[in-house]
């Protein structure tokens, strides 16, 4: 009943019959989801609140493992293996699949140390290498010009939009394959939002991107593929232009025309 298209590109991630159940819940929050995620493109997840889009996003880097008692079933394939396996090295996985959150999460340290944090965790100590890569990441996140003269300042002194770009710099500094964005602009003003959206589009040349958004226009503006979720199921996955113009499923049609949500 769900209509999932085949994608042209190679897959960065492949979700198959994936189910996720929160601790103590009687029924799974995500039901039998099968979904390809295209490499070097942007896949948006939309749907009314509670539909499971954030839950799905947080499964890709096994964020749910921070809270014991949650269970996964099915398969998420990444780099030829099932990352839901018990043997999966979560530290390694999370350096390969980075995440940007709903609110900017600048760590209580300097701008430089924020960006260098992930690299230091990987054991990079060489000062020139660190500062080269910090500079590159900040440039890629389009924030270098604003902070180059105050790298040693506390990151919490930056504005919300700047902090969010700092977080993006921090995430790309460790050179991940995939970046997960969880409603990254929900706490930002329209101008900062525009800046983040432009940045997300630029980034897809280097990473595969999945973005959860409550804002359909945002999905339409930035993404190549869009998945519509409802009550824990993936109802439809299609090329963004087609999905918004000629949805195949009635539920999708009703949602994008604002009949519910």
């Amino acid at each position: 009943m769900a209509s999932i298209i085949d994608i042209k590109e190679e897959c960065a991630l492949h979700v198959r019959d994936f189910e996720f159940t929160y601790k103590g819940a009687e029924s799974p929050s995500l039901k039998k989801i099968t979904m390809p995620i295209a490499k070097h493109s942007i896949t948006a997840l939309i749907g009314p609140s509670g539909c499971g889009k954030t839950t799905l996003l947080r499964s890709f880097n096994r964020m749910h493992d921070l809270y014991p008692g949650n269970t996964y079933a099915g398969e998420i394939e990444f780099e030829g293996r099932n990352i839901l396996s018990d043997k999966e090295d979560l530290i390694h996985l999370r350096t390969k699949i980075g995440m940007i959150f709903q609110k900017p999460t600048a760590f209580p340290m300097s701008i430089f140390d924020n960006v260098a944090y992930g690299m230091r965790l990987q054991g990079i100590k060489n000062k020139t290498e660190l500062s080269d890569r910090v500079e590159k990441a900040l440039k890629d996140a389009a924030i270098w010009k604003e902070v180059s003269d105050r790298l040693k300042h506390d990151a919490n002194g930056l504005s919300g939009g700047q902090q969010q770009r700092l977080c993006i710099a921090r995430a790309i500094a460790v050179e991940p394959e995939v970046l997960l964005f969880d409603e990254p602009t929900s706490a930002l003003d329209p101008i900062s939002t525009q800046g983040i959206e432009r940045l997300v589009i630029e980034l897809k040349e280097r990473v595969s991107i999945i973005i959860v958004t409550h804002n359909m226009q945002q999905a339409a503006r930035v993404s190549d593929y869009t998945g519509f979720m409802y009550l824990g199921e993936l109802i439809e996955l299609g090329e963004t232009e087609k999905l918004f113009v000629t949805p195949k499923e009635k539920l999708t049609q009703e949602y994008i025309t604002g009949k519910f949500g």
Binding site: M63, I91, H92, R94, M99, F101, T105, F107, L121
Partner: peptide, 19 residues
């Protein structure tokens, strides 16, 4: 969310506690 951000970069529990 701040703790999760550090885990999302591959931090261990102790990294998150001390950093």
């Amino acid at each position: 969310i701040l703790k999760e951000s550090a885990y999302a970069l591959g931090g261990t529990q102790w990294d998150v506690i001390k950093d």
